[in-house]
Design a binder for these strands. Sequence first.
DNA 1: ATGTCC
Length: 462
Amino acid sequence: MNGNDITALGFTGKAIGLALNAARHRETAGQTNDEIRAELGRVLHRPEAFIRDPLYADLGRELLGQAARFPDTLRERPLSYTEWGSELIDENTRAQMDTAMRLPISVAGALMPDAHVGFGLPIGGVLATDHAVIPYAVGVDIGCAMALSVLPVANLSREDEVRLLRRNTRFGAGHAWERKLRPDHAVLDEDTWHELPLLRQLRNKAAEQLGTSGSGNHFVEFGTLTLEAADLGLAPGQYIALLSHSGSRGFGAQVAGHYTQVAQNLHPDLDPDARKLAWLDMDRDEGQAYWTAMNLAGRYALANHEVIHARIARALGVKPLVTVRNSHNLAWKQRMPDGREVIVHRKGATPAGQGQLGIIPGSMADPGYVVRGKGNTQALESASHGSGRLLGRKQAERELSRSAVKEYLEARDVTVMGGGVDEAPQAYKNIDRVMASQADLVDVVARFMPRVVRMDTGRQDI
DNA sequence: ATGTCC
């Protein structure tokens, strides 16, 4: 093999010499030219698979660098970004956002008042990038969403609400609907499931878990919605409403895990601080594949809410007067004020474009709000997705007593089915302080107060 | 967030 053979295979620049050296090494070891050509072809086609190969590591890295639009080097200083509710945000969260703003692909960002540390990007972080998508800036629970239905029901006893939730919701990691009760939804019939091997592989799991909710902070609850003024097609007054928080279950988690791994393999030289922020170029197959899978997980998560709300409405023999819903873990294509198209990642942030409706829950025993976005461009048209954690899960279990939690719930007349001390209201920031700090991001449309809440069982039950 | 490494 000589240089002409190597360039004929498609190698350019510094990769020619590296490929030639590797080829000589194989020749010495007795391989035929056809074998060497085939092997080099595999390296050229998928360099990320060879970055830890004893012979091809340097060539793999060089090829990755040639293919990338940006080097894997972080900026010296983070781009500036705005934060809402600074007094509610800790230094570690800020440090994590600073790292995100040092990525070469980052364009703009913002921290919402519920922000706290997460994997990669903070929860409550918003990040705009240039033609690249970061799986961990979307989060593990791709498409996690809120939905609120206003029900045309005058009276509903607490006992009936408990029974309706027990019969019509399912919770917990790995949990699925019993076969005989398994729901259906048009999302399962989409051709998208056949576009990628990974999606084909995960379709059955998704079908089994359709219409269920996860663990942690996921919930389905009945409560009272109060409108001070006519809105949402409703007269002012109080209504019985159903509020749900659920995501894309095991399906979305596996998509997230898979593409995070792909992204990390494509960026072997990324600074360790930013390793969990490895990105996929939207011009490459991997970026397009993630985009397809992410959006399917987003639609699937919304389908979960639809199924949950439809089951409960059907059990009551009614149709909701109105349903509001929004995804808060997803990436969107969006235009900056200067017209430039960017990818906006919202990881625990509510889309809040001008006039856009959204839901910001407080806690299991604090009010949540239906909001209307003000299209604040500095916040990349976003708002918080809740009140945000004050205490970590373990810290909450250490510091909060079960009796203190029960007392809090009793004082507000809230019934909780399942739930753990780690989800106690006292583990969350004060929702009204959070709302006050984002008055320039959203207007309040209505207030929702929970009454009967169902969640997964926690490690320490309430 | 997820049966916690397909």
